[in-house]
């Protein structure tokens, strides 16, 4: 693989936050990885959708609420957060239960656009099939 090659990296998130450290430490990789100028996307599948729910409050469990960090992803040019529709539906959730994660599109006069893309299982399967590197935690 030559220098300057851009690969498609996908972070596949399937676990809820706080019960285990995977969600937090996955986000840490995403932030560090942003410096490498690769084509990055995140997928939230199954219980992974709970990582980006609105209104997380951890003050009574002694852990840091890291959900606001997802809002900063746009500043790192990470603008593709795929959420599987079926996973939301199975859990009685809708996109309204998720944080309003946005990015500013530099190619469109810095217009604010949603980073969350709710996609069907079939659509997500296509996106996954196109990846080079899949990071699962």
């Amino acid at each position: 693989m030559s220098e300057g090659t851009i690969k498609k990296f996908m972070y596949v998130n399937r676990k809820p936050p706080y019960g285990t450290v995977y969600a937090l430490e996955s986000l840490e990789v995403v932030l560090i990885g942003a410096a490498f100028d690769q084509d990055v996307s995140l997928a939230f599948i199954g219980d992974g959708v709970y990582q980006i729910t609105k209104g997380q409050s951890t003050s009574d469990i002694g852990m840091k609420n890291f959900s606001p960090t997802y809002n900063a992803l746009g500043d790192y040019d990470i603008t593709k957060l795929y959420v599987e529709q079926e996973s939301l539906t199975e859990r009685g959730l809708s996109v309204d239960d998720l944080m309003d994660i946005v990015y500013e599109d530099e190619d469109d006069d810095w217009a604010e656009k949603p980073s969350i893309r709710v996609v069907s299982r079939a659509e997500l399967a296509d996106v996954i099939a196109g990846q080079d590197i899949l990071l699962n935690f």
Partner: peptide
């Protein structure tokens, strides 16, 4: 953690 990303970039398979 950059070493993990670099491993992804440099390796043929992760």
């Amino acid at each position: 953690l950059g070493q993990l990303i670099e491993a992804g970039i440099q390796s043929d398979r992760l």
